[in-house]
Amino acid sequence: MKALRLYVVFIYIFLYSPIAIIVIYSFNSGRYAMDWQGFSTEWYGKALSNPLIVEALLTSLTIAGATALISAVIGTLAALGLQRVKGLCRNVFDGLIYIAIMVPSVVIGIATLVAFVTLFDIINPFVEAVLAFRFQMGMWTVIAAHVLFNIAVVCLIVRARLAGMDRSLVEASEDLYATPLGTFRQVVLPLLLPGIIAGALLAFTFSFEDFVIAFFVAGSDITLPIYVYSSIRRGVTPEINAIGTIVLMTSFTLLIAAQLIMRDRKQRRVGAGG
């Protein structure tokens, strides 16, 4: 029992020491990691006034926001649609969902890159002749590739929620002469909403964090993980430590806020029930 407690403490230290190192060195006045020169907050100021970092951050937020929104909508629609079909159509969709999840990101990134490059090579001469404009890789190709994976994730979560749903509520609503759209808006959607929100949040985090797919398909656009990666390769990261710490604190705050909101709701529900 004592050994187990010790082990648990060790694991928490193991999990948090690398994060602690990032946070501590973000306050280092020197340029190099593992070389403590004294306390300073200068890198925070420099990071936030570095136009490259700010732009990368905005690009990443835009991509993640768009991915979360689009995949939540399309994934939910697909989950609702799959409930209405059987046989071949359903099997094909099920298969595609699992393939989208199982194929490694690096293969998705490569396949998407190669397909886009091939496609652009074919259509760009025509497009250019007619519209004086060329298709290029960039933010929108990253969003498209992220949405693909996250449709699958949202769809699985919402379907689990649909499967657990009490059918009698829908029947009751129909018996009370609600239109199908009314039933959907007033009964089905509120019940699915926690699943949809959970899926959208997952999609946002995945997209915001993703380096592998973006690295292949971002073209000349730079996302935050791509910027972080190139800084690490150059071995100079004080500004990155600062930005990393800010992102970390934001996500921890959001995580704790979500926990508190959920607890509050649960207590209220228990209170209302009792």
Binding site: V73, I74, G75, L77, A78, L80, G81, L82, R84, V85, C89, F93, L96, I99, A100, V103, V107, I108, I110, A111, T112, V114, A115, T118, A144, A145, V147, L148, I151, C155
Partner: peptide, 21 residues
């Protein structure tokens, strides 16, 4: 209508790239 958007994404960003590969 419900399945079409997902179908379009799966076709252009999964099936087509895999065929190309």
């Amino acid at each position: 209508a419900l399945l079409a958007p997902a179908g379009v994404f799966f076709f252009f960003l999964l099936i087509l790239p895999l065929i190309v590969i």
